[in-house]
């Protein structure tokens, strides 16, 4: 087979392709912390519910989480201040630290979409990628939360009948022992691209959006093509309020956070 010349052969391409393809802007000033995005994401992506106990122990599998941080906890309670709500999902880094550490190419870069991929069935569960993610955006299937086998029927598990029917057929149902994370709703991207291709046109800006952006009542999340300077997401990212998380690590995340407005 002929070798793909777009690939970096012997040296890193850390400086290349700063543009990216798909991107997101999250306005922290608009976010009300209502968790609608979390719920929408879980529904769209077959994210299982882990139950109270596991969630309390840090095993909730939300692909997007609303971070809230408090300041001044050491002093008087009146001094305690809460920071902005910060919805956090996989930042779809261009130079993703999670990717090269996977021994089996389960965490791999999508060259055509410039997204991070997690190939569930390739994952052997070393969990190195999760350790190496500076944003802690990856979640692990600690148990068979989505075990809908015959043995696990409505008779012995009341969750079964509900959950079996709400699954999204476009998204893989994950079993125990694999890593997963936000995909920027790649199933919607593919659907829109297929539709556009069938109709012989490019994907229009705003034609589709991710589940979280769709659900956000405050329109705090904007999703779209960041290689298109006229798209909503590019325009929103251009503002002076924008910053990216841990930019010092040179991971080149595709999510821009807006904060500091009036």
């Amino acid at each position: 087979m002929s070798t793909n010349l777009e690939l970096p052969m012997f040296t890193n391409n850390s400086e290349a392709e700063l543009g990216g393809r798909w991107g997101m802007v999250i306005d922290k000033d608009l976010c009300t912390g209502c968790q609608a995005c979390v719920a929408a994401c879980s529904m769209e992506n077959n994210v299982p519910f882990v139950g109270e106990e596991d969630a309390g122990y840090g095993r909730s599998m939300q692909w997007i989480r609303i971070e809230r941080l408090w300041e001044g906890l050491d002093g008087d309670y009146r001094e305690v201040k809460m920071t902005d709500y910060q919805p956090l999902m996989c930042q779809q880094c261009h130079n993703a630290p999670c990717e090269p550490v996977c021994p089996v190419y389960a965490s791999v870069h999508s060259m055509s979409e410039d997204l991070n991929l997690q190939v569930y069935n390739r994952c052997v569960g070393t969990r190195y990628c999760a350790n190496n993610c500076p944003y802690q955006a990856r979640v692990f299937n600690w148990r068979d939360y989505a075990d809908y086998r015959e043995t696990n029927t409505a008779d012995n598990d009341p969750r079964w009948s509900v959950f079996q029917n709400q699954l999204n057929p476009d998204v893989t149902v994950r079993r125990r022992g694999v890593m997963e994370k936000c995909t920027f709703c790649i199933q919607r991207i593919h659907q829109a691209e297929n539709q556009a291709k069938a109709e012989g046109r490019e994907v229009r800006d705003g034609e589709f959006t991710t589940a979280c952006a769709q659900a956000c009542p405050a329109n705090a999340i904007v999703f779209g093509r960041i290689d298109d300077p006229e798209s909503m997401v590019s325009l929103a990212a251009e503002t002076s309020r924008g910053s990216r998380l841990h930019e010092e690590l040179r991971t080149m995340p595709r999510v821009t956070y807006l904060a500091g407005g009036a």
């Binding site: 840090g58 095993r59 350790n131 802690q136 979640v139 692990f140 600690w142 148990r143 125990r176 022992g177």
Partner: peptide, 14 residues
């Protein structure tokens, strides 16, 4: 049962 029976959790993956 999966790794849930171990103590590993969200930031402490190892």
């Amino acid at each position: 049962k999966g790794l849930g029976v171990a103590g590993v959790n969200m930031p402490v993956f190892w």
